[in-house]
Design a protein around this nucleic acid. Sequence first.
DNA 1: AGCACGCCGACT
DNA 2: GTCGGCGTGCTC
Length: 798
Amino acid sequence: MIAKVIVDVPTSQTDRLFDYDIPKEWEEIIQPGLRVIVPFGPRKIQGFVVDVAKESTFHKTKPIDDLLDVVPVLTDELLSLGAWLSEETLCFQLSAYQLMIPAALRTKVKKELRLLAHIETVPPSIRPYFQGGKNPLWNDLLKDNNVSLKEIQQAVKEERLEVCYQIEEKGKKKTERYVKVSEKSTVKDIPARAAKQRELLAYIQSLGQPISVQLLLQETGMTRQTITTLVKKGFVQEFEKEVYRDPLAGVEYEQTSPLKLTEQQQEVITPILDSLETKSHHTFLLHGVTGSGKTEVYLQAIDQALQQELEAIVLVPEISLTPQMVQRFKGRFGKKVAVLHSGLSMGEKYDEWRKILRKEVQVVVGARSAIFAPFTNLGIIIIDEEHETSYKQEENPRYHARDVAIFRGKHHQCPVILGSATPSLESYARAKKSVYKLLPLTERVHSRAMPTVQVVDMREELRNGNRSMFSYALLEKLRDRIEKGEQTVLFLNRRGYSTFVMCRDCGYVATCEHCDISLTYHRTHHTLKCHYCGHEEKMPNKCESCGSEHIRFFGSGTQKVEEELTRVLPEAKVIRMDIDTTRRKGSHERLLSAFGRGEADILLGTQMIAKGLDFPKITLVGVLAADSMLHIPDFRSAERTFQLMEQVSGRAGRHDLEGEVIIQSYTPDHYSIELVKSHDYEQFFQMEMNQRKVGLYPPYVFMVLITISHPELTNVITVSEKVVSFLKRELLESTTVLGPVASPLARIKDRYRYQCMIKYRNEPRLLETLREIRQHFIREINQGNLQVSIDLHPYLFT
DNA sequence: AGCACGCCGACT
DNA sequence: GTCGGCGTGCTC
C-alpha cells in the first residue's frame, strides 16, 4: 500500500504529492488526514497523508518512518477544502493544511547527535555537550565556533556518533497529578497513631472517584508529605491525568432561555429552519438594523441544529469576541460551546480544538480561523458582522472566511447565514441578484426608535471661531449627559491617521483627476500621489478650491483628545480605550465593566468600542472626525465610513432611554455621512453602487492585486513591467490591467514594492496565467530576493 | 527548506 | 595538487 503525502517543505517545487510505502504493520492504521514522518532526501520531515492507494507509478518509494497521530487531524472534507483553497488562493497545499490545525501541532523535526561509542572516542570539543547522558542538538553545535563539523562528520562515518531526528511537539497536553484508592485498602490497615493518614484515606475513599492532588490538598488542608506516604505504602495510587486548560475558569454563565421572537424575527428564521430541516444549502443575508435582535435569531437557529444532532460554527470579528459576546452563547448552550480567538494561549487553543475533534462540543464561537473547525456534521454556519474586513486573511493563504463558509455549507448541505446591519456591497448585490437569500429585519426589538443623528459641519464651527476638536453642539450635549448622570461614547477613528490633505476652511480634499480618490501626501518629495494610477502632483500651498492657506494633513490621537477633554470638561470622568490602554490581557474587559458599572461619564476610544457595546445608560454617541476614513485611498472608504457610522450610532439608546448621535464632519454633505441621519442603507447602497460602476470597482468587477518587491528598485520596476505586459498579452481584451505603480508603502524593510492591478468580469484563464507568472520568476524568487505576492479579491492595498 | 553535487579561484 | 566558494537541482 502507498500513502500520498504532502511534505512539510513550503516551496513550489515540493508543492505536490510524494508516494511512500506503508509498512505492513501500519496498513490498518494509516489513513488520509494523519501526520507522518517521512524520509525526504537525506533527512526526515513531517507530512500530511492525503490519500492512500494500491500502488505508485514511482519505482523507488521509501517507507513511512513514523506516525505522529493515531486519529486523523484533518477530516476528508478538510482535505478537499485544502486542495480547493490552494487552487483558489494560489497557496501551497501544505499552507492550507497548516491553517486548519492548531499551532501547537505544527511540529518541528530536530536533528540531534547520539553517542554510539565511548565518550573518549569523540572529538574533545563536543564532549561537554554529552554530559549527563544528554543528546545535543545539531543546531546548538553549529552555533559553537570551537566545534569542527569536519570532525563530527568523520565520527559519524566511523560510527562513533549517529545523527537522529527528534520530533518536537510544541503542544503539550496538560496533565495534573491525581490519586485514587488502591484496591482492598482499608483504613484499619493504617496504624492508629498515623491519624492524618487515616483521615486522608477515609476522605479519598468517601469520594468514590479519583481526585486531583492539588484539589485534595486544598480541601483537606493536609500536606503533600501525607499523600506521598500513603502512595509509598501502597494505599493509594498516584497517576497523571490529562486536563483541559480552561481560559474561562471560574466564570459562571447565567443560563438563558429562548426569548419570544418578534413577528419579523419569526419571518426571517423560518426559511433558515426550513433549510436546516430539509438539509439543503442556502446562503442567507440577514440584514438587520442595530438592535434588531440578530443574535437571538442565531441562537434559536443553532438550537434547532443541536436538536437535529448537528453542529454549528459562529464567526465573530476578533475585536468583538468580548466576554459580552461569549456570554450570550455560553449562557444558552453552556458546555456545548468552545471558544477560539487570538487572546488564548497556544495551549488553550489546542485544548479547545481537541474538544471539537473529540466531539465534546457542538458549537464553536470564534474568529476567522474557527471556520476550519473539524466538525463532521455541520448544521449551520453563521458569520456575524459579515462586512468586517478581518474575515479576509491578509497573509498567505489569503482566504476569505465567507468563501470557506460557503464551501463547507455546500459540502454539508446546510445553511450559511451572513448577518450585518450594514452588509458589504458585494453581499448585498448578490442578495439582490438572488444568489443569496435576503432576510430583512427593519425594526428594533420592542419597537425602540433608531437614535436621532445630527451631523455638525466643522467648517462652520471654524468660521464661528471654534478651533477645538469639539463642536459647540457636542460640548453642550456632553455637559447635559454628565448632569443627568447618563453616559457618552466618544469615538475617534485613528485609521486613516495618515496623510490625506484637506482644507480646514472649505473641506476640499485633494483627489486624483483620473481616479476620484484622495491623493496621499509623500513627505520625501513633498508631493501628492495617487496609488491607483500613479498620477503625481505638487503639494499645494493654498487650497485649490477656496484659496485658503488653512490646508493641512490630517490625524489626531486619542491621547490628545483626552487631554483636551479634561481641559474643557474638568468634571468629566473619562475612560480611554485604545491599543495603548488595552494591551495587557484582560484590561479590555476591565475597562468595559468599569464603564458598565457607571464609573465614568465618557468612554473615549477607537475602532474597538464601535461594536458589541450594550449599556443601558449610553444615550449619547459622538464621532469626532467622521471624515478620517473617507479619504483613505481605497475604493471602499465610503462604504467603511457608512458602516462605521451606523455601527457606532447603534451603541446609543438600546434600552429605555432614547439615544442621540452627533457626527462631526468637514464633508457633511457626503452621502456616506449624510445618509446616516436617516439610517438609510438602501439609499447608500444605490449611491455607492453608482460610484463603483463609474470607477469600475467591485462588485462590478473582480480584482487581483499583484505586489512585487525586491531590494533593488530597478529590479522591481523591470519585473513589474514584465508582469504587466505578460498579463496584457495573456488576458482577455475586456480585462483591465493597471500599473505598475509604486505601492502605497513603497518600501518595507529595505525592499522596494510595486504593484499592479487586474480588473475583470470573466477571465477563465486567470488562475493559470497567475501561476505562470510565479513560475516564470521562480529562479529569482528561490534565490530569495524577489517576492511576488498575488492577492485575489484584495481588501488591503498597501 | 536543506542538502549534495559540481565547477572555478586561492592556497599549504 | 587540494580546500572551499556558492550556483543548480532534487527530494517519493
